[in-house]
Design a protein around this nucleic acid. Structure first.
Length: 236
DNA sequence: GCGACAG
DNA sequence: ATCTTGTCGC
């Protein structure tokens, strides 16, 4: 893929770049038939001081795992609220590059446009991949919502608001469990994003793609091979 | 100026 | 993100 931009930037440069890139994000549906959905996540390897990204490709709507890959590289930046993508995206892209089958939709562990400059890691990755992406976060970076209006049942959701703008949705993916914060990443609408997140939720708080990627990224027993054929520790 | 702050 | 055992609830 053609590099969109440099990753080693100073904090002011990174912020300026986000303002630039944010204008290119498409918040409308531009996806075709969805047959494969990918989930991505990253974990930190304390001992080796590395970042370990994982990508899991699943068939839609069955949610059967088709591919899983890991990509590890040295940590490049500290975590700075608002600049998460400059710490994690490069590693995640390395993992996604190992996919044989290209996904039709990607779910990311983090915010899409529900970000102070409207470009969280899910949106940033969407621009790099030019593939529809959805931000699936476990907590809020910016925005507020009406807690009393959110039902307890799985499937209910209310808008997430910031500066008088709807930047995402607070979605109950599982009954009586803390909601997920969903936002448009790139090339998809909020309504469609919520639809896919719910369609990919299988009784857990995290939708399957992200849940599987989260597990894989933390899997210490996983050893990369050139073929990428054999699945890791299947005994869950 | 004082908090809040994805992972 | 990560530190961490048992425990409450469906």
């Amino acid at each position: 893929m053609t590099p969109l931009h440099e990753w080693n930037l100073t904090q002011p440069e990174a912020i300026a770049l986000q303002r630039e890139l944010a204008q290119r994000i498409v918040r409308e549906d531009r996806l075709g038939e969805v047959q494969h959905v990918a989930g991505v996540d990253m974990a930190i390897n304390e001992e080796h001081e590395t970042a370990q990204a994982a990508v899991v490709l699943l068939k839609y709507p069955e949610m059967e795992i088709v591919e899983r890959h890991i990509y590890e590289e040295p940590l490049r930046m500290p975590y700075i609220p608002g600049l998460l993508s400059f710490r994690e995206a490069p590693c995640v892209l390395g993992a996604v590059a190992r996919l044989k089958q290209q996904p039709d939709l990607v779910m990311v562990d983090g915010q899409g446009i529900a970000h102070p400059r409207r470009i969280g890691i899910a949106s940033h990755l969407g621009l790099w991949l030019n593939i529809p992406t959805i931000g699936c976060a476990k907590s809020i970076l910016v925005g507020k919502y009406d807690k009393d209006a959110l039902g307890e049942e799985a499937g209910s959701w209310v808008p997430l608001i910031n500066r008088h703008e709807v930047i995402g949705a607070v979605v109950r993916t599982r009954t009586r469990v803390n909601p997920m914060y969903i936002s448009v990443g790139h090339l998809i609408s909020l309504e469609t994003s919520v639809r896919y997140v719910l369609a990919c939720s299988k009784g857990y708080r995290l939708p399957e793609p992200t849940r599987q990627a989260d597990k894989l990224s933390k899997d210490k027993a996983w050893v990369e091979t050139d073929e990428q054929e054999k699945p890791p520790t299947l005994w869950e």
